[in-house]
Design a protein around this nucleic acid. Structure first.
Length: 300
DNA sequence: ATATGAATAT
DNA sequence: GATATTCATA
């Protein structure tokens, strides 16, 4: 079993635009030139790694990584159906994007991705200068983390694969394998995410215009299988984890992250926040197998 | 001794 | 509102 590049199912990750117009076939799938090869790449898929208790080394400082790679792209293919973390899944260490709370005019450095495949990348904002880089990124007070859609997706993927019940900050953090991401970062986000889950669960299970019962649930809740490939439960009795999608239901949207933008507004290119909307025409197959066995997404 | 989760603070 | 930090406790 070796590496194999599938050109057929290349771009479709986030269901974006991008078309390879007229490139020679052999060029399809190759880096576009300014797209760099991931500078840090795990040799072992994170899930696998965890299974073997291999914790990805993280010795580089943010500055190091920053210097080495302004841009890191990844071809995180996330499941077209079911398991998003297969052996074929490409793992890439993503550097986190942070915003300086202090003086930060604007870094003309922008991230760019050219072709589909959804890539995700983030860059570290180069702090003023060479701060006394004393201290491992543990002791340092890191700037506010910004949960970009990419990061969030990663988060959701991991949480999903762990099962909401056993997803705890440390594990999530490890599996996400994101450079510079701390446990508390994840913890905080997880807290909010759980809140979100609770909300939609509430709305969907006891306030829905339908039976609202786990038995014949035909409640229009987008379960877990869209662009996230969130459908992968049933292994350890995990529940599907919605990827919080603000759906255009009549004045009834849920979505843990909404009106927050304004950060980097290049041109509808990328780096748009959690704008993962979906054109979910109900009546398709939107049922919620979520509450399947126990019927409780959160219990402690 | 550590990690988690809720509350609270920025 | 988003993220960080504190704090009781598992």
């Amino acid at each position: 079993m070796g590496k194999e590049v599938r050109m057929s199912d290349y771009g479709d990750d986030d269901g974006e635009d991008d078309e390879h117009d007229k490139v020679p076939e052999w060029e399809i799938g190759l880096p576009e030139g300014d797209d760099l090869t991931p500078l840090s790449q795990s040799l072992v898929p994170s899930i696998l790694a965890l299974a073997f208790s291999i914790i990805p080394e993280r010795s580089r400082t943010i500055h190091d990584v920053d210097r080495a790679s302004r841009v890191t792209i990844s071809s995180l293919r996330s499941s077209s159906s079911g398991n998003g973390y297969s052996a074929a899944t490409e793992e890439v260490v993503v550097v986190v994007d942070r915003v300086g709370s202090s003086s930060h005019g604007s870094d003309p450095k922008k991230q760019r991705r050219s072709d589909g495949g959804g890539g995700e990348a983030a860059a570290v904002d180069s702090m003023a200068e060479e701060e006394g880089d004393s201290g491992t990124e543990k002791t340092l007070k890191r700037p506010r983390l910004v949960w970009t859609p990419q990061l969030h997706k990663r988060f959701v993927d991991v949480v999903d694969h762990l099962g909401i019940k056993s997803a705890v900050p440390k594990t999530i953090m490890q599996l996400m394998n994101v450079e510079g991401l701390s446990r508390e970062n994840v913890a905080s986000h997880l807290q909010k995410y759980r809140l979100y889950l609770k909300r939609i669960q509430g709305l969907t299970t006891e306030d829905g215009p339908y039976s609202s019962d786990q038995l014949f649930s035909s409640t229009p809740v987008p379960p877990q299988s869209f662009q996230d490939g969130g459908g992968s439960n049933g292994a350890t009795g995990k529940l599907g984890v919605p990827s919080m999608i603000p759906m255009p239901v009549y004045g009834n949207h849920v979505g843990m992250m909404q009106g927050q933008y304004h950060q980097y507004r290049d041109h509808g290119n990328e780096s748009n926040q959690y704008m993962m909307q979906q054109q979910n025409r109900f009546g398709t197959m939107v049922t919620s197998p979520s509450v399947g066995g126990g019927g409780d997404v959160n219990d402690k």
